[in-house]
Computed example of a mutant assay.
Amino acid sequence: MTASLNPALKAVTVLIPGILLSFSFDIFTPLVFLLFIIGYTIFFSGVPLKKWLMFFLPFMILAAGFAWMSMLYASGSFAEGRTLFTVWRFDVTTGSVAVGISLALRSLCFGALSLLFILTTDSTKFMLSLMQQFKLPPSITYGVLAGYRFLPLFRHEFQLLRQAQRVRGAGRAKGIKAKILQFRRYAVPLMANAIRRAERTANAMESKGFTGSYERTHYHHMQITAKDWSFFGMVNGALLITFAVSYYLGYLSIFGYQAGS
């Protein structure tokens, strides 16, 4: 299962295709890799299909918007070809359509890779793996973890403040000035509580011997195993094979320059 993989190496695994695909401006390369990522996510990641579709739908809407804007505002080097139709004063050509579809597919690849990482990764294990494998300073690691744990508390305190102010007759603000005053009524007590909680947390960590030193023991040991490297090789190997096939078939385009044979 993808959830049991080392989070740090998993992040590197999904980051490399995201960077390399940004250089490809053809349709074939991102389409094939997108189908691979979707297939892996559905059959091997352990993420429920309904949950994945719910998160992936916004990416599809954004990708459609990116494609449409690219078709209308394509630069001169990408707007070549036969004019298909005109929207107001913008000519949509075969070249701009190809660039728009390519951008949409690349955006969907980024979204699918991001969801594969986010939906299968525990945030605490991710920060611990960054500290142990990538030598992220412990002071930053535990600071981020503490801040992440505070988020639900801030939400609860905000709800209590809003209900308390409504009981005292402070309803929903109308107008810009009233909204600014309402924001101050919320922000000041939330900030004061956050400072007090941060100070108590820092004192508690110091009392337990936390110094931020790299030389420390760990209750949870994060390791990189052969299974992690297999995942790394499979994802990036699939990307390299996709590039090779695209080049052999003559589809590969790097920044608009045809690289295929």
Rank of each mutant, 00 (worst) to 15 (best):
T2P: 12
T2K: 10
S4G: 12
S4N: 15
L5I: 03
L5T: 00
P7Y: 08
A8R: 04
I19W: 01
L20M: 14
S22R: 06
S22H: 04
F23R: 06
F23H: 06
F28D: 06
F28Q: 02
V32M: 10
L34I: 00
F36A: 09
K50Q: 15
W52I: 06
W52T: 00
F56G: 01
F59P: 03
W68Q: 13
L72N: 12
L72M: 15
A74M: 05
F78D: 05
A79L: 02
E80Q: 13
E80C: 00
R82S: 11
R82H: 13
L84F: 07
L84N: 09
T86Q: 05
V87H: 07
F90G: 04
V92P: 08
S96A: 13
S96W: 06
S96T: 04
V97Y: 14
A98I: 09
A98P: 08
L103A: 14
L105M: 04
C109R: 10
L113H: 01
S114R: 10
L115M: 02
L116F: 02
L116Q: 05
T121D: 03
S123M: 14
S123C: 02
T124K: 02
F126W: 02
L128W: 02
L130I: 06
M131N: 15
M131F: 10
Q132M: 13
Q132A: 13
Q132G: 10
P137K: 13
I140E: 10
I140N: 06
T141S: 13
Y142E: 15
F150T: 14
L153S: 14
F154P: 03
H156F: 10
F158M: 13
Q159C: 09
L161S: 03
R162T: 13
G169K: 00
A170G: 09
G171D: 08
G171S: 05
A173V: 00
A173L: 01
K174A: 00
K174C: 08
K177A: 08
K179R: 09
I180L: 15
L181H: 04
Q182Y: 04
A187C: 06
A194M: 07
R196K: 05
A198K: 00
T201E: 06
E206D: 14
S207N: 06
G209H: 10
F210V: 02
F210S: 07
G212R: 03
S213L: 11
H218E: 13
H221I: 05
M222Q: 11
T225M: 12
K227A: 15
D228L: 10
S230R: 12
M234L: 15
V235M: 01
G237F: 03
L239N: 03
T242I: 07
L249W: 09
L252F: 02
Y257D: 05
Q258N: 14
G260F: 00
